[in-house]
Computed example of a mutant assay.
Amino acid sequence: MLTLYHSPQSRSSRIIRLLIELNVLDQVDIRIVTVVRHDGSGGADPSNPHPEGKVPLLVHDGAELWESNAIILYLTDLFADKGLGRPVGEPDRGSYLSWLAWYGNIVEPVLVFTAAGLNHPFLHATFRGAPEVAARLTAQLEKTPYLMGSAFSAADLLLVSPYTWMPQATPDVQVVRDWIERCESRPSARQVLEFDQGHMPG
């Protein structure tokens, strides 16, 4: 049994989008919960078992998984036949794992401290900055239309997500903008918006 704790228009929306891409949304029990929003709205939901009251949280047969990149890896391994991940044994498995880890370890921290206007040598030494993130994406997308090659993968789904939340953070680089447009032209981009709109608190 798969259960996803989800709050509309939050980081867990990308997990809904992944379930749509995997064509398994109907196999997952979606539990809508509230979370504390950046504007101060919302609040912790006592029905949400996430240790920090956040989303997403995936529960599979009683085992809890949190953090988007871990959940994405788990689901693409679980539904490996759908072709959105890279199973163990495939030559580019390491690249796939690296993109997922790079998002959580580098990209999101950089985008958050950049948006907050923070600038400190420790931050730059540890994470680098937005120009380095843009350069890494550009270097790959100048070679292939998607991060893993010629086809859309869950790595693209994860890495494109912050630029759909914060379009102002989008690098002014044409190959990156073209990649975002390709990702967002997929039906799942519209379907996840419709899902969230239909599940907003009354």
Rank of each mutant, 00 (worst) to 15 (best):
S153H: 10
G202D: 08
A80T: 03
M200C: 07
S47V: 10
S12G: 02
V107T: 12
L159W: 01
Y146P: 02
S7N: 12
H199K: 07
V176S: 06
S153K: 09
L147R: 12
W102M: 02
I20G: 06
V110I: 15
P49W: 09
R186Y: 02
F152L: 14
R31C: 11
G198L: 08
L97Q: 07
G129M: 01
R14Y: 00
Q197H: 14
S161H: 14
I16L: 10
W66S: 08
T170S: 11
P51G: 00
D39G: 07
N119P: 00
G94K: 12
A134N: 08
A70C: 11
Y74L: 03
R182D: 01
T126R: 15
A116M: 14
I30M: 10
Q174Y: 00
Y163S: 01
R128C: 00
G43N: 04
V192M: 09
E181A: 15
Q191D: 09
M148W: 07
I180W: 03
D77W: 05
G85H: 06
S13Y: 05
V192Q: 11
I20P: 09
L100M: 08
A135L: 08
V24Q: 15
R177Q: 15
L25G: 03
Q9F: 14
T138A: 13
N23P: 02
P167C: 03
Q140F: 00
N119K: 13
I32Q: 14
L147N: 05
L22K: 11
R14F: 01
A155D: 03
A134S: 14
T164V: 11
Y146F: 15
F79T: 07
S188G: 07
S98H: 14
T164H: 11
S68H: 01
Y5E: 03
L97P: 05
V24K: 14
S161Y: 13
R17G: 07
E142W: 00
L65V: 06
G40F: 10
E67P: 08
A44E: 00
A134K: 12
Q197I: 03
W179Q: 04
S10K: 07
A154G: 09
A151T: 12
E64I: 01
L157G: 10
H50L: 07
N69R: 15
S185L: 05
N23S: 12
A70P: 06
A134W: 06
Q27M: 09
H60P: 02
L2K: 07
D196S: 06
D29Y: 04
R190H: 13
D81F: 05
V107D: 04
I20C: 03
A169F: 12
V33P: 04
D172Y: 03
T34A: 14
Y74I: 00
I106D: 11
P167M: 09
S188W: 04
A135E: 14
I106F: 15
L78D: 00
L159Q: 09
D39S: 01
V112A: 14
E181Q: 13
L18F: 10
Y163A: 07
R11I: 01
D156N: 05
V107K: 13
Y96K: 06
W165Q: 12
